[in-house]
Write a protein that binds this DNA or RNA. Structure first.
Lengths: 196, 196, 196, 196
DNA sequence: ACTCACGGGACCTCCCGTTTCT
DNA sequence: AGAAACGGGAGGTCCCGTGAGT
């Protein structure tokens, strides 16, 4: 017997997937419903606020999932620099596997939905979380708190931008190059406990 | 009859402005028409292919205009690093002056319009031009051709990404920080004729 | 909630009526909706394929209804010839009662919609059904299978053509004359069981 | 040096061609203009009343041209019955050569444009002319004036209807069968001077 | 004599949200 | 909870006709 949350969760997951590929305005509620095998009415039962509420939850889900994948990649490498390179590889693979449709699951919606405060906030929250994840690992690698924050923003920005360029150029190389450059930049860092 | 190009050019400029702020799907032809004080019929007279053709010309216009502004900023500083910092300042000012609506005039459309090859190509062309502008100045500053290309992509990516983050966080600081970090990175470059 | 078929059926009936009088291109979805007292959204709920799907169902409805009326007229006369004359009378009355607007409910759309295979097929199906109805009765009246088929096509063609002429001339006499001529032609037939 | 009537005549001919294939509502002024290589303004210079005036002239042209072809076919056969069969062959060839697009050049517009008195009249005029051409030859073949008129209407109606059926069935056989049946029907006629 | 550009209405489609009935 | 149907606004496209300008 299907639990009541199943349909709801499926709708969020479907929305997350479509938002990543198409953005907010290209993703109709009808498409979400069709791909979730759910009738129209169910959307407004589970999400009384409608499309926006669903989108916000979808962004949060994408943020969590991709955040975990990013953490896993970073932790899989001994040095932070290698971790960043792995990040680039991961995104490059996503792009190739999806014919350059799967870039950042947040960026498209973030740029489109400038008019909605709620959606903008949801995007900001995800970016903050990712940034903190990066920052924490940069501190462990030897950066001061301040440097870590700055470097995390730089790394995040560069990858975000590279994903845009890669999509329009249909070539994942930018992502790889950028992450390699970033890796070199952070290689100088020493483990924090060994600093004078 | 007004000179034939007036209305047409105004429509392209209006579209460029709206595309930068809202992206493609949030910008209706009606809005473009209304803000251009043009009747419906004129759109399909001047742009037989419709909205897509108008969008492509608008993207090209934005690309040209912003490209020139970027070049001007880069050339206004003695060192390439300072030029990049000026770039960041310029974008930060745009964001503040527009309540964080005016970011990159290409990025939103680039991410939204993945389905349209013509629009994607138009975006790619603009990014290429910008990248080459950066690359040329990096070569003058002493980078090898190969390094210049890589660094240009890194600079462009970082700024693109920082503009996204700045918009959702409603804080232009990321742009400033990122450009400062990039400036440091390129400071080591020496004018090419002085290299060993 | 009203029983599910009401609005839908009303829309088909309205479309059938308008198609008969105006043809496909002169009949806007707005007019169909207005005369059905239905909101826009209902059209694409009940007919996901849009106007074409609605038109096809309307043609089928007209074909069925008029087919039954034709059968009734044919069966109301003892001899097939008299039946054909009754057919002519029926069409003449329709023309007069509608100020020459109600001719054949299929013909206008059939000629207009040459570009749409689906609509053409729908029209062909109706004509086939009518032709077979005629043919069956001609066989009963003594015609061989082959003659019945040919005569049915002749009768159908003549009436179709006469309806066009009657509309443009605003005079139903052509229809009456043609059906009388056709009646004479089939009077020679003897009931099949009495044939040598 | 092109005479001023050249463009005008070309537009009428183009319109006649398109009206035959597509009918009135499917034929935009833009298409006529494009296929005539004429600018928009020229239409209203040569035809101040606009599309309707052009359509009326086009219908008249088609009526004249096809009337002459029909007369030629009728006169090319010794007996009126054979002439009618030739008529059928001619129409069957037109259908086949045009992938069933070229039927009667008047009928589609006649049925579509019920709302316009002027167009309806133009169609009626053409049908009258054709009918009289047929009638005259039937009289020569031995029919009384009254019979000739009736038979002409029957022949015209049958062919008109058969052209509709042939188009939707994508098979020109109806036209051939119908004209053969009509031929048999008029074979009994004797040259008028030999009648008692 | 001819043309560019305007002018805006109407077309079909599709959207998102709601209501009412099972 | 789910499902069917309503409700109407807005989307992009394309139409036909008109004047100001050569």
């Amino acid at each position: 017997m299907p639990r009541r949350t199943d349909t709801r969760a499926l709708m969020v997951a479907t929305a997350a997937h479509l938002l990543r590929r198409q953005g907010l305005h290209s993703t109709g509620t009808s498409q979400i419903l069709a791909e979730s095998n759910a009738p129209r009415g169910s959307l407004y039962f589970h999400f009384p606020e409608g499309k926006e509420q669903l989108a916000i939850e979808a962004l949060a889900l994408s943020g969590r999932e991709l955040g975990e994948r990013m953490s896993a990649e970073l932790d899989a490498a001994p040095a932070i620099g290698d971790g960043i390179v792995r990040l680039g590889e991961m995104f490059a693979r996503s792009l190739l596997a999806s014919e350059f449709r799967d870039g950042c699951p947040i960026a498209t919606t973030a740029l489109e939905a400038a008019e909605s405060v709620a959606i903008r906030t949801a995007c900001a929250t995800v970016y903050d979380a990712w940034s903190q994840g990066l920052s924490a690992r940069l501190e462990v690698a030897g950066a001061t708190a301040q440097d870590a924050t700055r470097l995390a923003q730089l790394v995040l920005s560069s990858i975000q931008g590279a994903l845009i360029l890669a999509r329009v150029q249909r070539d994942p190389d930018v992502v790889r190059q950028v992450t390699q450059d970033l890796a070199e930049m952070v290689t100088g860092l020493a483990p924090s406990e060994e600093r004078p």
